[in-house]
Design a protein around this nucleic acid. Structure first.
Lengths: 148, 148
DNA sequence: ACAAAAACCTAGCACGATGGTAGGATTAAG
DNA sequence: CTTAATCCTACCATCGTGCTAGGTTTTTGT
């Protein structure tokens, strides 16, 4: 039940772009430096986010990325889905229903109700928070202490 | 955001023991056959569940496992925690707080509120369902269709 | 006493995902 | 025409997952 770094870094990057994109596009170099992440790894994540329609890429010098939609219209769930795939604690309880949904046995079927319940609460939690929400929090809190 | 087979199989096995344990202990061989799982892999899971105080092992012929507590007193969350570790979508938002909790940077801190929210809904979903609940469902539904 | 059935224990191992790096090609600003 | 950036593809080391194998102990039934 762990999120991979893709999802985590992706959210960090999107928040960074949202907060620093007021005057022109934000370069991944800047994001990488501020967030302490690898730039070339970020490139791959940004590529996925662009293809999914969450980021707009601007090439050439002084280029970078901007949000493709308003910060209030992009949820954490959107980002996670792009970078980690459909939300599904177990395959048979995926958001996106696969080819045929049948159970290997009756017991497996029983547990399914928990997995569906679990999936729904994950979806609800992730979809109820937008980038704008996170930016507002950040401005209020004023950030936290740097690492030791 | 996937559960590993440990958690899934563990829940399946516990439900199986709960439902078939009325007359004596349930052997892993029987569980493996009914659920279509590897017996030796199940042994490892059962070992962890026993050490964690969820199962009681009875050795020798006609031995097997019984629930160490009543089915109503064992939640799915209990099982998952034993087999997959503390519930934590990301490390900095773990149920069990690690050595020191500080953020690498202010942006990481911002996202943290989502992760905590996410963790809480996962915990709530998993802790609100007991083995007894799953058994009741199973008896009502009467199982579902076998695989194709 | 002995054979069978079970829990219990440990080591190892193949595979795939994760978390990157490397090196380039294209595009645009100055 | 140099520089800074996106964009693209291939590769790779490491680690967790999902097992298998092969034993030992313990208990029951004959």
């Amino acid at each position: 039940m762990k999120l991979s770094t893709k999802g985590r870094y992706g959210v960090m990057a999107m928040v960074d772009v949202a907060m620093n994109g007021d005057d022109g596009p934000v370069s991944l170099k800047a994001v990488a430096e501020r967030q302490g992440l690898s730039e070339s790894y970020l490139e791959q994540l940004a590529g996925s986010l662009r293809k999914a329609g969450l980021l707009t890429g601007i090439r050439g010098a002084q280029g970078g990325y901007t949000l493709a939609r308003e910060a209030g219209e992009i949820t954490v769930g959107d980002i996670i889905r792009v970078l980690e795939g459909p939300i599904a604690p177990v395959e048979c309880a995926s958001e996106e229903k696969g080819p045929v949904q049948h159970c290997a046995n009756s017991q497996g079927c029983v547990a399914k109700s928990v997995w569906v319940k679990l999936r729904d609460s994950i979806v609800k939690a992730l979809d109820s928070v937008s980038l704008a929400d996170l930016c507002d929090e950040a401005k209020q809190d004023g950030g936290c202490l740097p690492p030791v």
